[in-house]
């Protein structure tokens, strides 16, 4: 039923562009970390951080533009509040991803060889959770019913991430590296895991938004 499709709706189009920008940002984040695993702190790593930052800034601008448009459009206040809350929470996930990169960059963190595989796994799980957020938000503007399945996927990612975080932290503190380094590595592990925690918060919000509308 074309009349029920929201593809032509201005806000839906703006949100779609915002989601594409977020995907670009996630991709930069992934590439930056992969480069870090490969070469450590390097010029290429710095460049990819910069690219992530630019994408994040553009996404921020888009979000603000959507927020203004939301107030210009006549909408049920509840719907407006739901979208605003959703965008702000999605932005937090984006900021968290960026902060992981800055943490590594500013603290000149060296990733020990024995952690690289696990950390890459952790990165993939958290990226998966964040991609789930993008997918779920997109589905919100296509088919409300489909949102819940994606939220379950995000929840699974969050649980896997929690388990893996604990394992990695154990490994860190069982190793012989310097205690200071141990603490810094632990922090970056927790910070990375926060991406899926925050994704889950967006998922919870989406759950409420859809529940209210599936009556």
């Amino acid at each position: 039923m074309d009349i029920l499709s929201g593809r032509k709706h201005k806000i839906a189009q703006m949100i779609e562009r915002y989601l594409v920008k977020i995907e670009e940002c996630i991709e930069c984040f992934r590439k930056a970390l992969l480069k870090y695993f490969e070469k450590g702190i390097s010029r290429e790593f710095d460049e990819l951080i910069e690219k992530t930052h630019i994408a994040e800034s553009l996404a921020d601008d888009m979000r603000r533009e959507i927020e203004i448009t939301l107030y210009e459009k006549s909408m049920i206040p509840e719907s407006r509040g739901d979208i605003l809350g959703l965008l702000e929470n999605t932005d937090r996930v984006l900021n968290k991803a960026q902060s992981v990169l800055y943490q590594i960059q500013t603290q000149f963190l060296q990733m020990p060889e024995f952690l690289k595989e696990d950390f890459e796994k952790l990165m993939n799980i958290n990226i998966e959770a964040f991609k789930g957020v993008v997918k779920a938000v997109r589905k919100l503007f296509e088919d409300l019913k489909a949102v819940r399945d994606i939220i379950n996927e995000i929840d699974k990612c969050e649980s896997s991430s929690d388990r893996l975080e604990r394992e990695i932290i154990k490994k860190i503190f069982q190793s012989n590296i310097d205690i200071g380094e141990k603490i810094l590595l632990k922090e970056v592990v927790i910070e990375t895991g926060n991406i899926s925690d925050l994704s889950q918060i967006v998922g919870d919000r989406l759950n409420i938004i859809t529940a209210k509308r599936l009556i």
Partner: peptide
């Protein structure tokens, strides 16, 4: 009836208004 329509967020909002 509304559940059968597989509406999305903005259509739902518009329809409610």
């Amino acid at each position: 009836f509304l559940r059968k329509l597989h509406m999305h967020f903005l259509t739902y909002d518009r329809m409610m208004r």
